[in-house]
Design a protein around this nucleic acid. Structure first.
Lengths: 144, 144
DNA sequence: GGATCAAGTGAAAGCGAGAATCACTCTTGG
DNA sequence: CCAAGAGTGATTCTCGCTTTCACTTGATCC
């Protein structure tokens, strides 16, 4: 499972003519082991050997290769998680107080209805949809 | 209609102990007249008399007063639009190429289903939802 | 193994959207 | 009219993130 993840990551980087180096692998491991999307400071905290500049650079590389997904919140820091096709389709609870992000899913019925509605919207607007983003914004349990 | 908008804006600022000054009114007018959310450079372009620092400051004031809503995209610039209760509930098409943002709505059926599903998710996670955010991310007609 | 050279690394410097400063100007109430 | 406070805007500062550049790593050929 974890091995497979690294194979996929390696293959996608290769496709983008990039190597799957130690520190890129470390980022993937950290994100795979996290229960929620992580900010860069959180990543450095959990991988103290990581250099800030390399981490930022490698997250860009991993994002372009389709391994990592970058989440922009209203918070100061962006959050990073593995690409959705590696973790399954899901959405985010975003706390406006502490900035924390947690995952959630909705039933496949709702998701299917939504997908149909969005496909129609895209068609009407001549928009080529890459993905949709459904976030619930508010206060988390701790910040209530 | 426009007069009513200014009355509401004025009342909300008053509630936050802020005045509805000329430049704040100008921002509201620009946003009300725009067909899509605007970035700060776009605002300054359309209101050349506006000072950058004051515009940023006033957008914060207007946002805190609940008159303006700030949209964070992957783009360099945040986008601003009138608060949803002034314009009606809607969602955004976000172009990853040019950064442009356009509005769209989905049927009230889908919206209702979604609302129910999200309310349940919030309850389960002990999350106090402020609002939800549904964006379609991809390439706009022009950037295809 | 050793030589070569492109790719990756990381400390440090740079960039830029947006926030903070502060002297000045308006508004409001006495 | 005259303080006292709120708002303004040119400028400066902040800080996430990016870029630079000298150095290291690791493929590839001999």
């Amino acid at each position: 499972m974890a091995g497979e993840l690294h194979e996929v990551a390696s293959a996608r980087l290769a496709r983008a003519e990039q190597r799957y180096t130690r520190s890129r692998r470390a980022l993937v491991d950290l994100l795979a082991g996290a229960e929620a999307p992580l900010s860069l400071p959180q990543l450095l905290e959990r991988g103290p050997h990581l250099a800030q500049s390399s981490a930022y650079r490698n997250l860009v590389v991993l994002e372009r290769a389709g391994v990592v997904h970058r989440i922009v919140t209203a918070d100061d820091f962006a959050r990073y998680e593995l690409a959705e096709d590696l973790t399954g389709h899901h959405h985010h609870l975003i706390c406006t107080q502490c900035g924390e992000v947690r995952d959630f899913t909705v039933s496949s019925d709702v998701e299917a209805d939504l997908g149909r509605a969005l496909a129609e919207v895209a068609a009407v607007h001549g928009f080529t949809a890459d993905h949709h983003r459904l976030d619930l914004v508010g206060r988390c349990d701790a910040c209530r």
